[in-house]
Each structure stands twice: as C-alpha cells, then as structure tokens.
Design a protein around this nucleic acid. Sequence first.
DNA 1: TTATGATATTAGAAAATTCTAATATACTTA
DNA 2: TAAGTATATTAGAATTTTCTAATATCATAA
Lengths: 107, 107
Amino acid sequence: MNDLFFKLTASYLKALSHPTRLKIINILKEKELCVCVILEKLDLEQSNVSQHLRVLKEQNIVESRRDGSKIMYKVKDRNVFFILNKINDSLLKQLSETQDQLKKGGL
Amino acid sequence: MNDLFFKLTASYLKALSHPTRLKIINILKEKELCVCVILEKLDLEQSNVSQHLRVLKEQNIVESRRDGSKIMYKVKDRNVFFILNKINDSLLKQLSETQDQLKKGGL
DNA sequence: TTATGATATTAGAAAATTCTAATATACTTA
DNA sequence: TAAGTATATTAGAATTTTCTAATATCATAA
C-alpha cells in the first residue's frame, strides 16, 4: 500500500463527496440525459452544474458524448451505486444504533 | 431521496476522502491500536493525526476507548473495507482501460 | 452568415479544509 | 502532589473547494 494508491482513492472519494454530485449520479441512475434535463432537476446555476459534472467526469465516474447541440451524460462506473448503497447501509445502521441508545437512556 | 440524505452521504464520503484518514483506517484494519502506535506509523504531527481521528470518529467510522493513559482506536464500521475494496476495483478497471487505449493508439 | 440555444470555461470572492504550533486535559508514577 | 506521558483542543495561517457572474465555444436554424 503506497502513498499514490491512497491519494487516488481519496481523489475518487472526494469527487463523490458533495451533495450536488450525489444528486447528479442519482438523476443519471436509470438513463443517459442531456445537461439541460439535469439542470431542470437541480435548481442551480448552469455553470455550477457544469463544474460538478466535470469533477465526476475527471474521475471517470460519468462520461459524456455530443448529440447535436446537446451533451449527453451517463454513469460510466456503475460501481458507484454499489458503493452508495453500502454507505446507505452504514447510515441506517448508525441511525438504528442511535435510536437504541435513546431507548436505553430511558427517554 | 431528500436533501438531508444526500448531505449525510456526502459527509460520510468526505470523512473518507483524505489520504491520511485512509491510511489510518488501513492501519486499524486488523486490530485495535493506541494513538501512539498509529503515530509511529504515520510520520505526521500528533495534533494533525488527532484531528484526523476525530473526523473519522464523528462519522462513526472508528471508535475509541480509554485504556489507562492510552486511547485505543478501532474501526467500528467495517463496511468501509467493503467500500474501499469496491473503489479499488474501479481504479484498477480504469487503469486497465487506459492501458487498452494506449495499445489501440499504437504506442 | 448571423442569431440562438446548449454547454464549457474562466476569474475571483466566499467558504471549508488542512496543517502547524501552542496549550490544555487526564492518567500514571515517583 | 509534582512530574511525566498520552492525547485532545484551539488559534490562526495556508490551501483547496465551491459558488456566482461573465464570457467563450460550438452546433443549429433562420
């Protein structure tokens, strides 16, 4: 396990670690969509969304192609859904543990 | 899928997205260790390591207990290893795709 | 060939993260 | 109880990320 490996892994994780980027991945879960449709679903500045898309693309998490005047994006690395599901598991487990502790505490 | 869920997921990912924190998780993979031993393996400032440990603890990824004058840390959320392995897969896949493209290109 | 629509890029301000250095806390031993 | 050891916390500087606003690019339609 060398430094480069940890750096690359951290970069990948960093690309995922923003609510807007997670939303984008979720929006693209089922199908390829143009930026215009992604924009409609996000209520954010166009340039901001474009920047977030770039971050995801730089990590090869999504990919894009031109279709006429539109740019179509889709999830390239479907592993992300696996990863996000696992995190979901962790968060739910934490939640139930917190609830258990509250019960123990008597309140 | 609401905003809070994406925020929580992003926070979890952010806690993981630093090389030092990934190293710490790796160091703690097999066993519980005191901060002093973690420090030995990292060659970083004590306060810096302490701060990284706190970030991991805040996300319930690691947990700690006092043992005399030492504080022992261990990985609480073993899901992380699953997540990190998946990311490892993604990175290796990307690497082999890059190699394929270089071959195609003729060089 | 000009105007328009879709998207990307850039510049810079604002916010968040990270690091270092200093100090505080808590346990142990003399 | 004083000194030493282990770890946490704090303050502030440095760096990185994020956002907004403006501008650039490129394909299409007129």
